[in-house]
Design a protein around this nucleic acid. Sequence first.
DNA 1: CTCCTTTCTTAACAAATGTGAACGAAATTG
DNA 2: CAATTTCGTTCACATTTGTTAAGAAAGGAG
Lengths: 186, 186
Amino acid sequence: MPEELIKKIRSIGNFSDADIAFFIDKLDETVIAKGEHFLSEGQVSRHLGYVVSGLAMHYKVYDGVEIPCDFTSENGWLGYLNSFTNKTPSDMNIKALEETRLLLLSADNLEKVYQVQPRFMLLKDHYTELSFISNTRHTADLTMLTAKQRYYKFMQENPGLINRVPQYYIAAYLGIKPQSLSRIRK
Amino acid sequence: MPEELIKKIRSIGNFSDADIAFFIDKLDETVIAKGEHFLSEGQVSRHLGYVVSGLAMHYKVYDGVEIPCDFTSENGWLGYLNSFTNKTPSDMNIKALEETRLLLLSADNLEKVYQVQPRFMLLKDHYTELSFISNTRHTADLTMLTAKQRYYKFMQENPGLINRVPQYYIAAYLGIKPQSLSRIRK
DNA sequence: CTCCTTTCTTAACAAATGTGAACGAAATTG
DNA sequence: CAATTTCGTTCACATTTGTTAAGAAAGGAG
């Protein structure tokens, strides 16, 4: 039983135990190997994934360069709603940085959940809002903070990730070169 | 008749003339003076606004500094859906950089539109998607381009805005100081 | 129109970040 | 385990951007 997930669901809407049980029942376990993709550019996203253990990265590719958008570890959600809800090809990639254990929620199953309890749409709205806010904050950080400040902030807000995410991805996320990150770390 | 707006609506969903007429009828004209706010932090957003003429800016305030998120001119939409759809206080500000003529759509009227033709939700989804993508692209630009490249790109993509948006806002949007922008412009 | 405030530009210097290259550590593969 | 590749660090030097300050230009108020 994914206790953390259930706790989160309760904190978002006032769902009955039966609703929650129905929702949990629609989840399928799966594992993604390190380096494997959960979603690739061009694909239509057909699942959301709740991370039970492991680590994954949302990223976009511009001019052949991977630009990390987000790192997701335990108790976070993987998915790209633009593609998932509109069934359009994704311009986002998601790949595992460690072997990652997931609870999968397919679009079909989510539809069934909505039919039983439409208020589960609150989950999607909540998630959309969170990613938008987090995206805006990251943009603001890139806009007004120095590289050093961005690194310290990243460390404070993600103390667990520093030793799990490769440095060149952290550097790319912070908008600097790996050499500059090395310099800052001393 | 806002021809441009009607054209956009048609391009998003296959709406009947009657649906579109009903939608257009729910819009109210208004004017915002230069410097006035369409939405202020802490307020609940109760309207979306289609820009007929003028120019406005979405921005957030961090540590007392205004960080522009977006500049919106003719035929663009003003609004912050997080606050508008969830009726929660906004952490976004929107203010006019020029006297701006708007077509207002209230939450109540949008509700009426949905009742007549639920597929108008496609508009909101489309708008959400656009802002998310544009936000991600801006983040990527801040991450991997130099200040000079960001400025040239901004000029190319917004040729009309260079002479309408104050330079210190453009500089802030690009993540550099006004003096650096001046230097680049020479 | 004139005064006053705000915005824009310029310059010299300081600080931060990028570049290219070399080396060692760590991880992966067979 | 050995071989190979990838990743992280360090350095010297080039380039970019920030800082401080001053004056010019533009815009608004009376």
